[in-house]
Amino acid sequence: MEIEVTVNGVAYRRDTEPRRLLVDFIRTELGLTGTHIGCDTTSCGACTVLFDGVPVKSCTMFAVQADGHELTTVEGLRRNGELSPVQAAFKEHHGLQCGFCTPGMMLVATALLSSNPDPTEEEVRWALSGNICRCTGYTNIVEAIRSAAATMHETAGVES
């Protein structure tokens, strides 16, 4: 089946098998390997991408379902050649160790902050509850996201 999908602002037209999972399409057919696979039960969130701005687990969708939609993967988080506030905060707050969960975590965080610019710790933790990290114990991930929120506030303040 031929599908058209926009990923990180780039339009792709590809012929793909109807049963191909979106995550495999992204990784193999588009070569965007920052989206990871950590489970086979929709449990871990390593495969999280933004689907029209909403975080989805790309292991649990078919590529053909993305036809006509817009996706953002970790490769699309940079803005104007610079790290996004979420990316920068993950590094600054040591929010990653092996890095395998990190793309999914950052995409969930990015979506959260766009709908809730000043989340409480509870809200951050709840938003992350579909994503597993086996390394960090989450503390620094939560801190990174809250600090990214603060940075985004400040920058917004400066601009206005």
């Binding site: 965007l32 390997t33 920052g34 989206t35 990871h36 993967t73 970790v74 490769e75 988080l77 940079r78 790290l83 990316q87 993950f90 590094k91 990653l96 890095g99 395998f100 990190t102 793309p103 950052m106």
Partner: peptide, 12 residues
């Protein structure tokens, strides 16, 4: 090492 991981540029 973080620069590559936060940009999806790790090579697993």
């Amino acid at each position: 090492e973080d620069d590559r991981f936060i940009q999806g540029a790790g090579r697993y």
